[in-house]
């Protein structure tokens, strides 16, 4: 069984725009794999390359160096086959649209349905199942603009799973959500993970959001700093990733930036990585990327 995602020594640098712009790598020599049916949280500061990594996994960006494979195929092939479901960081859909909840969820199968054919019985079953899993049956025919923020997010999750994906990618899904909301979100993702045998990747700068969902954690701040179970994630690693006081990120623990110095020893960081048997990168320096 191939890994759900293989990220092989991947670097990405955004093209410089304008005369005065300088190209800096958004991510640098990231190297790890994600086993099928795991729930991986990717933790890192804003601008640390998390969204870039997601775009590389989705095949929207092509690596400057290295390669990405999704279920043994190129991301573009995996995407075309509907193997990837995606929930964006911000819902930018036009909520003034005259479109119902069910019609939005059906868009998740748009790339699979021939234009001259009506939705098949399989399509309708998958759409109904997706709506049921996010518990929106009673709102199925409601206009999209008449929903609350939480309901809207569940619609977008239903759209993401309507195509029967095997990998669900969630980009900062709980920004601005309180702790109880994060827990409920974690429970929903847990249900989807079990019911649909999904591999889940959740990206966040918030440790609590990661803790509510993930059974594996990768820390990314331009390069990979850690990849293991959440238990092995120490305050020192977090200080290195965030490169400053991370109080509020990691519960009540107050960590000052100077603690990061204790993490500069690569051997120290390697210890965590090899604990989970993962193939991680060998670049532990650097922090605070310049993701555009």
């Amino acid at each position: 069984m191939p890994p759900a995602v293989e990220i092989d020594h991947v670097s990405y640098t955004y093209p410089a725009t304008g005369f005065d712009a300088q190209a800096a790598p958004a991510i640098d020599q990231v190297n790890f794999s994600i086993a099928q049916n795991t729930k991986l949280g990717i933790l890192g500061p804003n601008g640390g390359g998390k969204s870039t990594l997601i775009k590389l996994i989705l095949g929207i960006l092509q690596p400057t160096k290295g390669s990405v494979r999704v279920f043994g195929q190129s991301p573009a092939q995996a995407r075309q086959q509907g193997l990837i479901g995606y929930l964006p960081q911000r819902i930018e859909a036009d909520l003034d649209w005259p479109i119902s909840v069910r019609q939005v969820v059906a868009l998740g199968r748009a790339c699979r349905t021939k234009p001259w054919k009506k939705l098949s019985a399989d399509d309708n079953t998958a759409i109904d199942r997706a709506i049921e899993l996010v518990d929106l049956q009673s709102l199925s025919n409601r206009p999209i603009g008449a929903l609350s923020g939480g309901q809207l997010q569940r619609v977008m999750i239903a759209r993401a799973i309507a195509g029967n994906p095997r990998l669900l990618v969630l980009d900062e899904p709980t920004v601005g959500v309180d702790i109880a909301g994060q827990q409920r979100f974690g429970n929903l993702i847990d249900t989807l993970h079990k019911e649909l045998d999904l591999t889940v990747i959740l990206v966040s700068h918030d440790m609590r959001a990661i803790a509510a969902v993930a059974d594996r954690v990768a820390c990314l701040s331009r390069s990979l700093h850690f990849h293991d179970t959440p238990d092995g994630l120490t305050p020192a690693v977090l200080a290195q990733v965030f490169a400053h006081d991370v109080a509020g990120v990691f519960g009540d623990i107050h960590i000052d930036a100077h603690l990061a110095e204790s993490c500069d020893d690569p051997a120290h960081a390697h210890q965590h990585q090899h604990d989970c048997g993962c193939t991680d990168n060998d670049n532990f320096g650097g922090s605070g990327g310049d993701e555009s």
Partner: peptide, 23 residues
């Protein structure tokens, strides 16, 4: 337009995510 109606509806409704959905 009819031939592409599903693609156009998805694009017009929520263009930022269409690439991620293979459109």
């Amino acid at each position: 337009t009819w031939f592409n109606h599903r693609r156009f509806i998805f694009w017009a409704f929520d263009e930022p995510v269409t690439d991620a959905y293979g459109l």
